[in-house]
């Protein structure tokens, strides 16, 4: 046995020469580890369907040999069942001194190392994923709890006028539908769902005789009533919380109008924060389709007609168009969220 042959055998490598289609002649002795797996037929190895992976590799090996590449083409690791045990193998194809060579390696050690490395990294990734899921789950719980507390407080504040808990929840949900339709990210959608219900929080600072007055307000009373926007904005300022900043903008600007005729600042068009423009639309819708002390509940048709006449003057026309496109979802919320 040549030194080279012994070396190959020592590394559990078996070198074969292609003699014809799928037929190979060993040129080094078959390593012990491969003996039970590969039986020779008249001193030749015929690679057929019994070794589907190797047969598959021969297709690529053929092209490699035709192009006479001396550098090896590696098959990648595969496993064969042998006497109830799995054997890890790898094959290489190369062209040397006019011969098409196939080397079959038994790679127990390499396989063990690769498997250990891969298993460790994937176990680590799975633990990371699990932790991320747990953080996300708990964050959702915290957000839901905060939202619930905020809705309870808003409902309590709303007891002084006719704002009901359901109205407050609906405003948040309608606004979230609009934000989703605008393609906002999930965080921003969450923010507006929580921020929009706070639009009238400043009414807490308005005296009862104005807030609960059944008839029309006098000019001075109206001026006082309009301060609820500034009061709300002031209450929601300087928290350092992104969602609360959005709530502040909404409280301050939800009575601004697209044409600049609103209050408190007379902002026009896109000077008005978009969250406030959205809230203005859904607040008007909800007020129109529900009964108030000064009006009955209007039908969807009448509401639509009134709001259409406000589009472009009071309401942002582009957002109103989006509102119309998503009206089915808005109406579903209206039906589902009742007092």
């Amino acid at each position: 046995m040549t030194l080279l042959a012994r070396t190959f055998q020592g590394f559990n490598q078996w070198v074969l020469r292609e003699v014809s289609e799928q037929c190979f002649e060993p040129i080094t002795p078959r390593p012990q580890a491969l003996s039970p797996l590969f039986k020779l037929d008249d001193e030749f190895l015929h690679i057929g369907e019994q070794w589907p992976f190797l047969l598959h590799f021969l297709y690529d090996a053929k092209a490699h040999w035709i192009e006479q590449h001396a550098q090896p083409l590696i098959s990648g690791i595969w496993l064969e069942d042998c006497q109830g045990k799995e054997i890890a193998l790898e094959a290489s194809a190369l062209y040397v001194d006019g011969e098409s060579l196939l080397i079959v390696h038994e790679i127990e050690r390499k396989y063990g190392e690769t498997a250990y490395r891969l298993q460790s990294s994937r176990d680590h990734l799975l633990v990371e994923e699990e932790l991320e899921r747990e953080v996300a789950r708990r964050t959702r719980q915290i957000i839901a709890r905060e939202e619930q507390i905020s809705l309870c407080l808003l409902a309590a504040a709303g007891c002084r006028d006719e704002e009901t808990g359901a109205h407050i929840r609906r405003i948040g949900l309608y606004s979230a539908v609009m934000a989703e339709a605008l393609g906002w990210g999930i965080d921003q959608v969450d923010h507006i769902r929580m921020a929009a219900p706070m639009h009238d929080i400043g009414k807490i600072g308005i005296p009862d005789y104005i807030l609960q007055k059944p008839g029309a307000l006098e000019n001075d009373e109206r001026s006082l009533m309009e301060t609820h926007a500034a009061i709300g904005a002031s209450m929601l300022s300087d928290t350092g919380i992104e969602m609360m900043d959005m709530a502040r903008d909404i409280a301050q600007c939800h009575h601004e109008r697209w044409d600049g005729s609103g209050y408190p600042k007379g902002l026009r068009g896109e000077e008005i924060p978009i969250a406030a423009r959205i809230t203005a639309i859904v607040d008007i819708y909800d007020a129109l389709v529900h009964k108030r002390v000064y009006k009955p509940a209007y039908s969807e048709e009448k509401t639509y007609d009134i709001m259409s006449s406000m589009s472009g003057s009071h309401l942002d026309p582009r957002l109103f168009e989006l509102f119309q496109q998503n009206l089915a979802q808005i109406q579903a919320i209206r039906q589902q969220v009742q007092d």
Binding site: F53, G76, I77, W78, A88, T114, L118, Q119, R122, L126
Partner: peptide
């Protein structure tokens, strides 16, 4: 128990 697959098994 999760055991990662290395390579190909037929």
């Amino acid at each position: 128990k999760y055991l990662t697959t290395v390579g190909v098994k037929i």
